[in-house]
Design a protein around this nucleic acid. Sequence first.
RNA 1: GGAGAGGAUCAUAUAUCUGCUGUCCCGCUUGCGGGAGAGAGGAAAGUCCGAACACCAAAGGGCAGGAUACUUCUUAACUGGAAGUCCUUGUGAAGGGGAGCUAGCUCCACAGAAACAAACCGCCGAAAGGUAAGGGUGAAAUGGCAGAGUAAGAGCCUGCCAGAUUCUGACGUGAGUCAGAAUGCUCGGAAAGCCUUAUCCGGUGCAAUGCCAAAUAGGGAAGCAGUCUUCGGACCCGGAUUUGCCCGAUCCGGUUUGCUUUCGGGUAGGCAGCUUAAGCCGGCUUAAAUGUCCCGGUUGGGAAUAGCAAUAUUCGGCUUAGAGAAAUAGAUGUAUGAUCACUUGUUAGGUGAUUAACAGAAUUCGGCUUAUGACCGUCUCCGACA
RNA 2: CGGGAUGUAGCGCAGUUCGGUAGCGCACACGGCUGGGGGCCGUGGAGUCGUAGGUUCAAAUCCUAUCAUCCCGA
Length: 106
Amino acid sequence: MRFIRSTREYHEVYAGHEKRHGALFLFLRRRVSGAEECSVGIVVSRKVGNAVRRNKVKRRVRAYLREHSGQLPLGKLVIIAKSSSGTSNWADIAEDLGRNLTGIRE
RNA sequence: GGAGAGGAUCAUAUAUCUGCUGUCCCGCUUGCGGGAGAGAGGAAAGUCCGAACACCAAAGGGCAGGAUACUUCUUAACUGGAAGUCCUUGUGAAGGGGAGCUAGCUCCACAGAAACAAACCGCCGAAAGGUAAGGGUGAAAUGGCAGAGUAAGAGCCUGCCAGAUUCUGACGUGAGUCAGAAUGCUCGGAAAGCCUUAUCCGGUGCAAUGCCAAAUAGGGAAGCAGUCUUCGGACCCGGAUUUGCCCGAUCCGGUUUGCUUUCGGGUAGGCAGCUUAAGCCGGCUUAAAUGUCCCGGUUGGGAAUAGCAAUAUUCGGCUUAGAGAAAUAGAUGUAUGAUCACUUGUUAGGUGAUUAACAGAAUUCGGCUUAUGACCGUCUCCGACA
RNA sequence: CGGGAUGUAGCGCAGUUCGGUAGCGCACACGGCUGGGGGCCGUGGAGUCGUAGGUUCAAAUCCUAUCAUCCCGA
C-alpha cells in the first residue's frame, strides 16, 4: 500500500472512477490493469472542521488502512471525508470503512 | 459569603501493543535491515505592525501617496513596553483616550428671525440711522446676577461669580501643577470632513533567490546521404513546367530536405535556502554583560588575528521539530483533576457514569489582537457576625 | 505570502459618495371583484442594518477591532 501524493494522480482518479457512498466517507475507485498494490489518497475538506479535527480524521483513516493493508482493493482509491466524520468516534469510522472497503473489493 | 478589577504560572502524568518523519552509527544485497536518540503552541491562529534575509531599482533633492501624533525613559526596530501628566467613565479597585478649528475651505437635518452672516420682527428716532435688551426653537444662539448709564440699548462702564489668554514666581528633565498679577478678552461645533504642522517610509516577497536537469516542440553548429573534373562543367539525385502516363526537353536546387551528433536557453522534476537561537545558567574580568575593532546595534554586515578549511575571538555547561497532498499518531488501561448521580461512619470518604478548554509548526525573530481550561496570590465594593 | 469585495425584512437587492425620514420587487396576512380557482385592485405586518467599542447633538453611513462568506495573484 502507498499514498497518492501528486495532483496528477488525483486528477487521473477524478477523470474515471466508480463511486460508492458510505455513511461518513465517499469512495472513488479507478481500476488499473496489472496493478499489484493499492494507491490511496485521502481528501478532507474545510467542511469537516478546523485543522485539528481534519488532521484527526486523516490520522484515523491512515491508522485503519495500515492495520488492514492486506484487505484493500487493487488499483487507485480516493477516500473523501463527509462533514459528519469530524464528530464521529473511532468505532463508527472503523465500521464504515470496513463495510465499504469489503463491498468495493467484491 | 457575594459581585468585580488587575497580575503571575501551568497547559495531566504514565504503561502495553501497533505505527509515522528527520538525524547519527553499524551491516550489506545500494536501498533496504538493525540499533541509538529527537519530534507542535501560549496562543503554533488572525496576518495587524516592526525587523533579519534574498532579489530588483537607485547621484542628490522635491512633489504625490502612505503611516504615526501628551511627556520622559526603554527597545535592533515598531500602531511595542514602563513610569508620569491632563481629560473622561465608574461608588471603588481600575478602564479608555490625547498635535492644530486665533491659516484657509466645507458641513451643521427638522425647528427657528437667525447656525457665523449680520439681516428680519421689535425698540428708539422727524429722517438718515442707531441697537443686539426682547423673539423660546434647537444638540448648539456671542457668559450669569445686580447696579450705573442711554433717545433706546449694549462688558460701553462698575462690583461679585464662572471661564479664557498673556506675564511673573516656585516645583518638575518634561508634559504639566500651584500661587500671584494684567487684559472686559468671553472668540459656536465638527479635523475618527478636506486640510495644516512635525517625524518616518524605494519596491517585491522563501511560490524570494541560487544550482542540477528528462521527454516533446522549436533555435544554433558540425557530419553523412556523390563520383569524375581542366573547377567552366558533366553524369547522378530531388523538385517544378511541358495535357493523364512513359521517354525526352527546359528551368531550379543539392547552402533544400532527411538522418545522426552536439550546444545553450528552459518546462516537469530534484537539491539548496531549512533551522543554533535578536537564547538561558554559572565562573573569570571590568566602572559596567564591559568582553579584538568599526558601522547608533548581544541579530546582521565589514575588518583584523588564529586556523589548510569549516570556524573561533573570556571560559564552561544546558536547550535545540524541520515536513513538503505536508510526519509528530491509533487503540486499550491505570492514577490525578473537573461535572453529575447514588451511598456511608457527612468540614471527610467510597462506588458508578461522562468529558478531556482553545487549538496544529511551513523562512526566522520581536510585538499586538483574538479564542480558551485550571490554579495561585494582590486589591476594591456590598452584606453578615465578633 | 500578498491583494480585494460583500454582510440591510423569509428571498433577491437599493440607500453608505457628502451623517439627520430605512425603502423597492417577489413572498406572507386581510379585504374586494368571481359561483369557485387563477388573475387584478386595495390595505397591512415583518428590520436593535453581521458583532463589539468609539467619534458626534445625532451613526446603516465616519473610525477601530472582530466574525462569517466569496473572489484574485505569485
